[in-house]
C-alpha cells in the first residue's frame, strides 16, 4: 500500500468514512449488550400457548375465530389495522420467519405475513386420524412440532407429539407421532425439545434427528407443567408453582434452580 500522502483525496475520505461507520457500529453493538444477563430482543419471548405474538412492528392476537393485527411501530400507540377470520376454536399463535402458525382444536392454520398488515392463509396441516385436537406448535428450520391433546374440548383418540415436514409450507406433511399422556406447551433449545406432559412431567427429547424425537428424560420437580420458554441458558416453565426455572447450559440436562410463586 502506498504511503498516505500519495493516495488520492477521494480514497482517503472514503477510507475515513468506513473507519467512522465501523466504529459507530462497534459502539452501538456494545451498548445494546451491556447490563443484560440475556441477549437483547426488543420484543422478548412468550410461550407456545400464547394468543398474542409480536413480529417486528406488529402485534398479532387470536381469539376463538379471528386474527387481529395491530400496528405498533409507535409502541405506545397500537392501532388496529385488520381483523381476519381464521377458523373455529382457535387456541394459539406462533410466529416463524414470515409466517404465522395458528393452532386450533382441529388443525394448524398457516398464514403468510409477507405483507405484515394483510395475513394471507397459505395452508393447513391436518393430523391424520384427528377429529378434534389442541395444537400448540413450534417450528425449527424445516420442521414443526405440535402437541395434540385429546382431553376436554379437544376430543380425538390419542394424545401425541407430532412432527411435520414444512419444507413446503403449502403442503405440511406429518412425518412422525409419538404417544404422550396429556401434552400442552413445548419449546426447544438447539437440538433439544421440551414438552409439557402436564402431571407426568416435563419431557426432554433429543431432536438431532429432526423427525425422530428420542426421549432423554422426564423432569418431575413440579406437580404439573403447562408451558415452557427456553431463554438462553434458562428454561422458564409455567407450573403449579408459578414459574419453575432450570439451568439449561447443558440443554440435555436441565438443572433445577428454583420456583417463584
Amino acid at each position: 500500500m502506498p504511503p498516505l500522502k500519495f493516495i488520492p483525496m477521494q480514497k482517503k475520505i472514503l477510507f475515513a468514512v468506513c473507519i467512522l461507520l465501523f466504529s459507530l457500529l462497534l459502539i452501538h453493538c456494545n451498548k445494546t449488550s451491556e447490563n443484560n444477563a440475556f441477549a437483547p430482543n426488543p420484543s422478548g419471548q412468550g410461550g407456545s400457548l400464547a394468543r398474542f405474538t409480536i413480529v417486528g412492528n406488529y402485534l398479532y392476537a387470536v381469539d376463538e375465530e379471528n386474527l387481529s393485527v395491530f400496528k405498533i411501530l409507535d409502541a405506545a400507540n397500537p392501532v388496529l389495522i385488520k381483523t381476519t377470520k381464521v377458523g373455529f376454536e382457535i387456541e394459539t399463535i406462533f410466529p416463524f420467519k414470515d409466517k404465522l402458525f395458528i393452532g386450533s382444536t382441529s388443525v394448524v392454520h398457516i398464514f403468510s405475513i409477507e405483507n405484515p398488515e394483510d395475513p394471507v392463509k397459505l395452508s393447513q396441516a391436518i393430523s391424520p386420524n384427528v377429529i378434534r385436537r389442541c395444537d400448540p406448535v413450534v417450528a425449527k428450520d424445516t420442521v414443526a412440532y405440535a402437541t395434540l391433546r385429546v382431553n376436554g374440548e379437544c376430543g380425538g383418540i390419542q394424545s401425541v407429539l407430532a412432527c411435520y415436514d414444512i419444507k413446503n409450507v403449502l403442503n405440511p406433511v406429518q412425518k412422525f407421532a409419538v404417544n404422550v399422556g396429556e401434552p400442552y406447551g413445548l419449546g426447544y433449545k438447539d437440538d433439544v425439545l421440551y414438552v409439557c406432559d402436564r402431571q407426568a412431567g416435563l419431557r426432554v427429547y433429543d431432536i438431532s434427528k429432526a423427525y425422530l424425537p428420542v426421549q432423554i428424560k422426564v423432569l418431575t420437580d413440579a406437580t404439573w407443567y403447562i408451558d415452557v420458554i427456553p431463554y438462553n441458558n434458562v428454561l422458564l416453565c409455567w407450573t403449579n408453582a408459578g414459574v419453575t426455572l432450570y439451568d439449561i447450559t447443558n440443554n440435555r440436562n436441565p438443572v433445577l434452580l428454583t420456583s417463584i410463586q
Partner: peptide, 18 residues
Amino acid sequence: RAVEKPGKIYVIGNLLLQ
C-alpha cells in the same frame, strides 16, 4: 404477592412476567 392462578408467561431482558 404470590400468584393465585398461575397463567401464561413472558420474558424480555431480565424481566419475567406471569
